[in-house]
Amino acid sequence: MDTFAFIKARDVSHAIQAASQSNTAQQGAEVRFVAGGTTLIDLMKLSVERPSQVIDINHLPLDNVEKLPDGRLKIGALVRNFDLAHHEIVQNEYSVLSQALLAGASAQLRNMATTAGNLLQRTRCVYFRNTAMACNKREPGSGCSAIEGDNRTLAILGTSSNCIATNPSDMNVALTALEATIHVQDKNGQRDIPIDDFFVVPGSTPQRENVLEPGDLITHVTLPPSRHGTKYAYLKLRDRASYEFALASAAVVADVVDNKFNRVRIALGGVGTKPWRSREAEQALEGRTVDQSVFREAAVAALSEARPQSENGFKIELAQRCLAHALTLATETA
């Protein structure tokens, strides 16, 4: 851990002003915002994150959950995971998000972690977290230790020859299936970014995980208006029963009319380098009858592009079973 300057932001524009001085908003950033700190502080202790300035944004007025006049749900960047998971509107109208949040981390972490912080959660790849190891995400050009190393928990979708690190978040998977929009403010104003465009796959620049630039501050997230009768499920599979990152997870947001899938959104977790929207699965489901064989077809389609590593080939089958069962859970509820 290095010494750093700690600045308390006076207001949103002060926070943005201060962060604009950073070299990047991605790996290697000289300036970082801190909210819950559940990822950042951990990585600073490991010297994986080495900002010279940390800007505390905890007291900024970004901690509300409110329904907008047009029916969208606005979730402030600083809403704690615990509060979001237990919010009445989220539980009643977007239960997949509540389920995903409660499947993540531990009660203590959920009390601290925030919405925007969870969006920016870093990978748990063990090589990323150990500065003695080569890692293209942490140190571009140094190589990927995971590809020929311990990769049981790592990604099979969206990987490249430079990086196979998994996005570990549960919340992001639900937000992806809900087609959330990320609202970002910078010196010039506000940008509204669909969540699937917010995250980027590693390609040849694994140090870059999203589209944020220096001075960008996530102010809030919005969810589209909920529709009556939408069916939801979030299913997370892992080795132990609690407090572990997903080996595979699936979020289902489905409208079913006359026992046929109408509009369906599917996202997978634990298997992608980003929260993995599966349009292949959605296509395999839309217009089809609610049936186990259709679930299985969608599950196979969702993993059709999977590229397993030496130790994680089982994730293909596991993710397929996960999605098929999530579809079962979503559709068997009234």
Partner: peptide
Amino acid sequence: YDPRQGAPINSNLADYIVATHAD
């Protein structure tokens, strides 16, 4: 242990899995 560098690579309580209360 990483086979190339010999480091115990899952050297923390998130990656070294022990039974929790729920287990």
